[in-house]
Design a protein around this nucleic acid. Sequence first.
DNA 1: TAACCGTGGAC
DNA 2: TGTCCAAGGTT
Length: 293
Amino acid sequence: MSNPLSAAVIDWFEHNGRDLPWRRDGFTPWGTLVSEFMLQQTPVQRVLPRLEEWLRRWPTPADLAAAAPGDAVRAWANLGYPRRALWLHRAAEQIVDRHGGVVPDDVDALLALTGIGDYTARAVAVFAYGSRHPVVDTNTRRVIARAVHGNAEPAPPRRSDLADMEALLPDDDVEQAEMNAGLMELGALVCTARRPACEVCPIADQCQWLLAGSPPYAGPRRATQKAYEGSDRHVRGLILAALRGSDTVTAETVEGLWPDPVQRDRALAGLIADGLVVPASDASEPCTRYRLP
DNA sequence: TAACCGTGGAC
DNA sequence: TGTCCAAGGTT
């Protein structure tokens, strides 16, 4: 049984959903898992070429687990948040160790893997294996906030988001997966953050926010994100970009990347603590070079 | 739990 | 031009 909202979303998705690699027949669970890692905070269009290259090079978890972590960081290229590359490599090792090299289909087993949280675990379980779970990402939360709750913007993520989505899921196995994917797609293509295209929205006639006259957001202001320019993240990014470009980088080169020695050292120490950078000491010399793990 | 973690495109 | 945003997760 399916409610009017999910029926409209599913019908729209069947006709308007994008032709993306992870929606094609024959795409593997491992491919789904890799794509979900890459899509964490990185736009679809930037993921596509890196995903294709990654899966050609490491078509199974065992292939990635056998590689050096640094190769994963390098192949991650400019997708951002390079810790995800490290975590994906670690998850591949765990899949080999715990699950015989097969991506698990169980949400709890997926949640136990490094770098996998509420969203990714359910996305893999639903999209790779077809089991029935609410999949809630930022798109889903925004559509539900508007269509169901009548708010212009969603509240910060919370556990009740899963129940909200669960309430919208059809019982049918195929339809629940399409509803999960369709609501995300609707948020990505139509019910966008900045300028929602309500004039073409398939659920406009059911949207509580639109029916209320599209009132502006009334909740508390979200914390504005800190400037990237000049931040520690900026410095980390510069150091890592240099390391992606060559096997090793000298301390002298690192010094040339950023003028402030305190911030530079803090960024480098952070990268080392995260396991993204390794001091490569020569046997006869003090540590003056760095490399990827 | 709030802060932290990259990068680039859109406006 | 600076701000916002993007299929989150970890500590």
